[in-house]
Each structure stands twice: as C-alpha cells, then as structure tokens.
Design a binder for these strands. Structure first.
Lengths: 225, 225
DNA sequence: GCAGGTTATGTCAGCTACTGACATTCGGCA
DNA sequence: TGCCGAATGTCAGTAGCTGACATAACCTGC
C-alpha cells in the first residue's frame, strides 16, 4: 500500500470489483486515524500530541500508523486533501471562454461554497479543514509541511492550465507564472482569514479571497499614489 | 544568546566596544558549524548527515550545536540569510520614482549580481547558496523549512513596501498582494533554475528571474490565444 | 470450505533529532 | 587576583521514524 499522497488507501487497480472487506477495513482505519488525530490536535495542540496517542486511540500499533502516514504532518494535512481535489475538478470543468485567471478565481470560490453546503462530502470535513487552517499558522512545522504540499498542488494547476489552453508549459511560462501568482494569492488570503477579524466559515473565506483577487491588478499597476 | 533568527551570533547591544574575545569565538564557532554542515550536506546529502557528525567536525558537543541552531534545517538554510538581508537592503534603497513592482525587480537583480561579484561578502558564500538551492528541491523537509522562511521574509517585504509608499498594510492590501506575487515569482524562477537547463551562477539565475517577470503581465492578461 | 499465497498488522530493536537539568570551564571586569 | 555570568559539556530522557521478522487476517481457486 501507501502510494505517494493517497487521499484514500489504495484500491487495487481499476474499480472493477466491489471494494471487498480488506479494502473497506483499510479505509476505515485510515479515516479513524485522521479523525482521532484531528480531535487530539485541536484539543491539545499538534506538538503535544504523540503518535502513540493517536495510534492507541484507534487501537492500532504505532508501526501501523506509520504505514498509513509517512509522518505526523501527513495525518494533520489529510483533511485538506478532499478540498484540494475538488478544486482541481472544478478547474477542469470551467468553460473555455473564461480567461485562465477567471477560471481559477471561479474555481476556488465554487469549491469553497460547494463544500460549505456540504452534501458533496462528509458533513463536517469542511469545518475540520477550516479549524486546521487556523492551527497551521501557529504551528511552524505543520505550516512548513503544508507549504510544501501547496507547491505540489501548484504543479498540478500548471498542468491543467496548460492543457486547457493547449500549451506546452515548458515552452510557455504563462501557466507556471499564473499558477504561482494564484497560489500565493490564496496563501495570503488564508493568512488574513486565519488572523481572525474575518467572518468565519467558508463564506468568510470566500470574501477574503475575493478581496485579494480584486487587489491583484491594482497591486501590479504602476504607482500606488 | 540565540535570538529568533540570528544571521550572526548576538552581539551584546550597540556595537560600541570592539567585539571582545568571547563574541569572536562564538562567531567563529557558528561559522565553523555552518561551513562544516554545508560541506557534509553536499558530500553525503542532508538526511544522511547527522548532527553529531557536524558537531564533532567542529569539535563541539551536540548540545552546543543545538544552542546555535534550533534544528538541523536551520544550519542548512543559514547560508541564504546573507543574500536575503542584502536584498532587503537593496529594496530600501530603491529610488521613490520607481513603481513598487519595478523596485522589487531591480532589487533582486541587483542583489544577485552584487553578491555574484563577491567583494561584498565572504568569497564563496554565493556559490554555497546556489548549491544549496539545488539541493533544496530534492530534499522535502529542507524545502518545507525554506518555504516557511520565505513567508516570513515576505512579511518583511510587505513592511518595506508599505513604508515606502506610506500605506497602512492592514488597510490597503496592495503591499501584501504584491509581496505575495513577488515571492511566488521568485520561487518559480528558483525551481526552474534548479531544474537545470539554465546557465549556472548568479547570472543564470538573474536571467531566469527576468524571464518570469516578463511573463507576469501576459499571464494575467485575458485570453492566451 | 479448505489449502496456499498475498497483504496488513504487531512486536521489537535501533537510530536520530531534540530538550531539560546540572556541573564545569572560560572570558570579562573590578 | 578573584568573582560573576555566559558558554560549553555531560547525562538522561522523550519522541519521531525505520527495518526485520513473525503472526494473523483476507482472498482466491479448487
């Protein structure tokens, strides 16, 4: 098992057969670990929660924990994976008439709002993700791990943008540049949102994101005064 | 000793008195640790180098190592600190007529080129930094730590930009947005440079950075075709 | 429904990053 | 010279993480 960054445990190739007991159990264990970890992290903080605690909360050995997650960071960040995947899906489905920038903007907004009115996914997974994002900013090692993930996500965005516009991303730098700008914009918005004054929940997040997008052109424009 | 992210060991307030033996020794030890670490990292990789190795290469105890650096990452990234500081200084000195974007662009270019023709700093510290940047991309935990540092640097840039333009960065988002865009652009350029095809050395780096800057407006422009 | 291969899990032993507490030594200074 | 404070060393301990091997659980074909 254990591929690179599995959002779920690996199913053994094409979903031909119905999952089978073994697969279901793995999925169960994985989910249980994520949930237990999340609960503990929120209660006592990331650093003060040991892997042993998480493992024994789910009643598996520490060794098993590390077979599901490469490290402690990974469980913590697993919650976000759903949202990320959904965003990419949204981006893939944007109409071709939109400019790339418009498509990106519309995609995150849609992703947040859809996941907010959560029928798409498990009931509270969005709130988990949001709580986690607040914790991120106060937990340096977690933040570091998260940022690394973000840059990987960025690669994916480059891919999708390039496909969408029919470009070779090694030739034409525009996809890479736009993806980078987009990622950093989101990151700033997240920081601002986590800093607190903003309204909570997905709607609040969307509001902040939109404000940052609106400031993109002005920030790049010539002089500011 | 040991403040937050000291580029050098702390000197006991205003540099009134000449450093004194104690301070010089600390500085010496610190430098020796950085150098030894760097050498070992390049030879055998980051993960396969233990802190004990580094410490005993300089003939201090492991405990002492951790009094100079909070963790293994920090030694590795210490080399970049000089360059970062110099960049900020450049930015502070840009003429007010330049637009913020121009000022940023001119500052990194100048910083790299100046440090390249290294009289400003220790002879090979630039090459160390460049070698390190290559290693970064292949060393996930290091990359993660680096990214976190970058976001802290970003805060500083926001400050400087806001001062320069006489704005309150909590009111006006333009400094934050521009700093974010700038950071992500640099990051992309670094990735591209590390990926290899580019000419080596500071000049190569500058070339890549300029290319990314040139693609900024086009990437944000409406449609790409 | 059972034999035999595959796959997840547990156990154990070990390494390394990192930390607190306390003892020791060394530089600064009267 | 002798005292104070700062830097270092030593030691013991915690926690993240890994390899090796044994055991137990599923699955597959008969």
């Amino acid at each position: 098992m254990a591929a690179r960054t599995p959002r779920t445990t690996d199913t053994p190739e094409g979903s031909a057969h119905p999952p089978g007991l073994r697969e279901r159990k793995k999925q169960q264990t994985r989910d249980a670990l994520v949930q237990a970890a999340h609960k503990l992290f929120l209660r006592q903080g990331f650093a003060r929660t040991t892997v042993d605690e998480i493992a024994s909360a789910v009643d598996v050995s520490q060794r098993t924990f590390f077979r599901y997650f490469a490290n402690k960071d990974e469980v913590a960040l697993a919650v976000m994976a759903v949202a990320e995947d959904y965003f990419i899906e949204c981006l893939r489905n944007r109409p071709a008439e939109e400019t790339p920038l418009q498509a990106l903007r519309a995609s995150i907004v849609k992703a947040w709002l859809d996941l907010g009115s959560a029928e798409t996914t498990s009931p509270d997974s969005i709130h988990s993700a949001l709580e986690l994002m607040r914790m991120l900013e106060e937990t340096p090692p977690l933040l570091a791990a998260h940022l690394r993930r973000v840059t990987e996500q960025e690669r994916l965005v480059v891919q999708v943008l390039a496909e969408r516009e029919g470009l070779d991303p090694t030739e034409d730098l525009r996809p890479a540049v736009l993806a980078a700008v987009f990622a950093s914009l989101l990151r700033s918005a997240h920081m601002s949102w986590s800093a607190g004054q903003q309204p909570p929940g997905p709607e609040g997040m969307v509001a902040v994101i939109e404000r940052y997008f609106d400031n993109l052109a002005p920030a790049l424009a010539g002089h500011w005064r």
